[in-house]
Computed example of a mutant assay.
Amino acid sequence: MDDASGTPRAIKNDITNLQFATPRGVQDITGIDKSAYERLLLLADMSVTLNGVFNDASNMSHDVFKTVTSTSVARTTTLTVSGQTLAGELLYTDYPLTRADSGELTWAVPGVLADGTVPTWA
Rank of each mutant, 00 (worst) to 15 (best):
S58D: 14
V64A: 12
Y92V: 00
T77K: 06
G88F: 09
D2L: 06
S82D: 13
S47F: 00
K66H: 13
R24A: 12
T16I: 13
I32V: 14
E38L: 02
A100N: 11
A36Y: 01
L79E: 06
P23C: 08
H62R: 08
P23M: 02
F54C: 11
A21Q: 14
L90I: 10
A57K: 13
V26Y: 14
R99W: 00
T49A: 10
L105P: 02
Y92P: 01
A57F: 00
G103E: 05
G31A: 10
W121C: 05
T49I: 05
D101S: 12
A21H: 06
F20T: 07
D101Q: 14
L86S: 11
G111A: 02
T80R: 02
S47H: 03
G116M: 06
W107Y: 14
T69Q: 09
N13I: 07
A10V: 14
L86P: 09
S58H: 12
Q84L: 07
S47P: 04
R24W: 14
R99T: 15
L86V: 04
A44C: 09
L90P: 12
V68T: 15
G103L: 04
L86W: 09
V118P: 07
L105Y: 08
Q27I: 12
N51T: 14
L86M: 10
P8H: 10
W107L: 06
S82N: 15
N55L: 00
T80L: 00
A74I: 05
V64S: 05
A10F: 08
G31E: 07
S5V: 01
M46V: 06
A57W: 02
S58A: 12
V48R: 02
V64K: 10
T71C: 08
G83W: 05
T85Y: 01
S102I: 01
F54H: 03
S72A: 15
Q19F: 06
F20S: 08
P110G: 08
M60G: 00
T98D: 15
S72Q: 12
T85V: 04
